[in-house]
């Protein structure tokens, strides 16, 4: 097993066809989920008729800017950690030098990259934030009360590519080839999981906010932030 996990054949597969599969599942799955949401929403009398672009944007704006909503201001620590976590989670893989090199080798496309030390720090931030979320699940009573196995699995799914990426880059603890294989695999698993697990909040955030923003703003003349 260990031999298989360290094999160059696996590496080639994960780096080649599996990337395509992962992206097809991620993008295709996302499109599918969004389309099915939109078509199901057509059956409702209360969704489309009340949507308002202005109030959807107002709501989204107040919830993607740190401290722009009341609840965010009431919980400065959680707000800071959540925003730090999500920005590092999204930007680190996109602007990582090693990732960009792979893209450049394949298609000769290049874009801005993060300095290595910054990317390293951002990876650690993601990991520490996940540890924070994990501890919060154990400690905060209101969170512990509603936590189920799936919540831990999701945290693990997100943590895996970052931890393995960090270890592979620094070449500590395990064999490099092994760690890289685990890193690529876990990254692909995370991508594929987005449309089909609670990670789908990445896709649905915009829609749930748009609806609530419209209902609050356009229909009920009040604010949802």
């Amino acid at each position: 097993m260990y031999e298989f996990l360290t094999s160059i054949e696996l590496y080639r597969f994960l780096k080649g066809p599996m990337v395509w599969i992962a992206f097809i599942v991620f993008i295709g799955g996302s499109i599918f989920r969004i389309c099915s949401l939109m078509s199901r929403a057509k059956g409702s009398k209360v969704l489309y008729p009340y949507l308002s672009v202005k109030y959807s944007l107002r709501s989204i704006f107040h919830w993607v800017i740190p401290f722009a909503s009341t609840n965010m201001r009431k919980r400065p620590w959680i707000t800071s950690i959540t925003f730090l976590f999500h920005s590092c989670l999204i930007f680190t893989p996109i602007f990582l030098f090693a990732h960009n090199m792979l893209v450049r080798e394949s298609w000769n496309i290049r874009w801005w990259t993060l300095p290595e030390r910054t990317a390293d720090a951002m990876t650690l931030i993601v990991v520490f934030c996940i540890v924070f979320f994990l501890l919060r699940r154990f400690i905060a009573p209101e969170v512990r009360y509603v936590t189920s196995a799936s919540d831990y699995i999701i945290l693990g799914t997100v943590a895996a590519p970052f931890i393995s990426g960090y270890l592979a880059f620094h070449q500590v603890f395990f064999d490099y080839r092994f760690m890289v294989n685990i890193h690529i695999l876990s990254g692909e698993v995370m991508l594929m999981a987005i449309p089909f697990t609670r990670l789908s909040h990445m896709l649905f955030f915009w829609f749930t906010r748009a609806y609530t923003g419209s209902e609050f703003g356009a229909v009920r003349h009040s604010r949802d932030f």
């Binding site: 949401l37 905060a140 969170v143 009360y145 189920s148 609670r198 909040h201 749930t208």
Partner: peptide
């Protein structure tokens, strides 16, 4: 139930930030 049910149940990350409301 309309599309909200499925979307809400799947989107909720059990973060507990609604509690104090």
């Amino acid at each position: 139930a309309d599309a909200r049910l499925e979307t809400y149940v799947e989107t909720c990350t059990h973060c507990g930030l609604c509690s104090e409301a």
